Amino acid sequence: MHIMEGYLPVAHAVGWFAASAPFVAAGVVSFRKIVARHPEARLSVAAAGAFTFVLSALKMPSVTGSCSHPTGTGLGAVMFGPSVMALLGTIVLLFQALLLAHGGLTTLGANVFSMAIVGPWVSWAVWQCSRKLGLSQAVAVCLAAAIGDLATYLTTSAQLAWAYPDPVSHFGGAFAKFAGIFAITQLPLAVAEGLLTVVAINALSARIGHLDSFGMVEERKRA
């Protein structure tokens, strides 16, 4: 759901940078706390960032000015919490804009807000609620990743609708159009991302012992 370079009006681009900046700053603090408490977690954090980079680079055409793709942010949100994903997502989006021409620098703030802030926070909230409801880890992870993906695409739809409202039906009409077109590709992508995230979580849990130090596996043990 990367909005392409130069597509947003200047005021919108600046506004989304301002809205995203505090979350990214908090992500830096969160990352420092994680590596201070668990120095061995650096590789796992890097794996979460790489997962996000690879999945979100798998783009396909969608609405004008944007595209459809998995996000990959649910993995890190479940493992480390949503705050650190603002930092990791920003790094991913910056590299994609510079190296892959995917997204853009002027739209970086908007893309960070949708994919690295809203998506991870929704994923984390779904994960927490699912575990409290007694759902299995696999189901909770799948729901967290899939719904976080959908939250990202809905946020991007709102950003585009706000920037380019329909002349007759205004924001609501534009949002319905953007979200409706996105849904054709994004709904199956969200399901696929949920399933793939379960596979990734299981692989990391089995191979990296220090994941037992994090809240995800602690909840599994208590269950």
Rank of each mutant, 00 (worst) to 15 (best):
H2P: 08
S20L: 07
A179W: 04
A46K: 03
V63R: 03
V217R: 13
I181A: 10
N111P: 02
P61A: 01
A179C: 00
G27H: 02
A19S: 11
W124S: 11
H12P: 08
A47H: 01
F53S: 11
V45N: 06
A145D: 02
T156S: 13
T152M: 05
L135V: 05
E218W: 14
H12Q: 14
I181Q: 10
M85C: 06
G6H: 06
Q96W: 08
L108D: 04
S213R: 02
V54I: 14
D212T: 14
M4S: 12
H38L: 02
P22Y: 11
T197F: 08
E5K: 00
F53Y: 15
P167N: 03
K33P: 05
G173H: 10
L100R: 11
V54D: 01
L93A: 12
A86Y: 09
A25W: 10
F95Q: 11
P39G: 07
C142V: 08
A174I: 02
V63N: 05
H38F: 11
T197G: 02
H38Q: 10
M79Q: 01
G172M: 07
K132H: 14
L187Y: 10
S136L: 02
E218L: 15
S136I: 05
A116W: 02
C129A: 15
R207V: 12
G76L: 07
L99E: 13
F214T: 01
M60E: 06
T156A: 11
L211S: 08
G27K: 00
L75S: 03
G215Y: 13
L154F: 10
T185A: 15
P165A: 08
F53Q: 05
V198M: 03
V54P: 02
Q128K: 15
K59G: 10
G104A: 06
I201N: 09
G209D: 13
L108N: 00
H38D: 11
A161C: 09
A163F: 09
S62E: 04
I181G: 03
G27R: 05
T152G: 10
D212R: 15
N111E: 04
L187K: 11
T155W: 09
N202L: 14
R37K: 15
T64P: 08
F23D: 03
A101P: 05
V10D: 14
I34A: 06
S130N: 10
V191T: 07
